[in-house]
């Protein structure tokens, strides 16, 4: 060993590194999972809304606008919040189309 102090320094760096890693990694993983879940939910809602649109009589511009917004939100690289907003828009569009049957 070059110098006894290096030993302690290396140990301290390892400790801090491990601590940061164990704090950061699960956090990032949870966020990633949330994002994917929200996108999955949003996509499901958009697909449902698309089905409702095809089944609706006539056009509902309000619903179409909402669905377009939802699709652009999901298409972008947004996070969980954007995906949740997209899901909200899609559900609302879905509701509008169902009312126009």
């Amino acid at each position: 060993m070059a110098h006894p102090y290096l030993f302690w320094l290396a140990g301290a760096v390892l400790l801090v590194g491990a601590g940061v890693l164990t704090a950061l990694l699960p956090h990032r993983r949870a966020r990633e999972e949330q994002r994917r879940t929200a996108r999955s939910a949003a996509r499901a809602a958009i697909d449902s809304a698309a089905v409702s649109r095809d089944a609706a009589r006539g056009r509902v511009p309000e619903a179409e606008r909402l669905l377009t917004r939802a699709e652009s939100l999901v298409g972008g690289r947004g996070g969980a919040d954007a995906a949740r907003a997209a899901a909200g828009h899609a559900r609302q569009a879905d509701r509008l189309w169902r009312q126009h049957r």
Binding site: E33, T37, S40, S48, A55
Partner: peptide, 30 residues
């Protein structure tokens, strides 16, 4: 038909969610 189609679409979403190992709660919701 639309309800059935929506059900099938949602089923597909649930299947892909399950395959992507998304949380069980989310799969259950779908």
């Amino acid at each position: 038909n639309p309800a059935l189609t929506r059900g099938i679409v949602t089923l597909q979403a649930a299947r892909s969610a399950w395959e992507e190992k998304l949380p069980a709660r989310h799969v259950r919701t779908l």
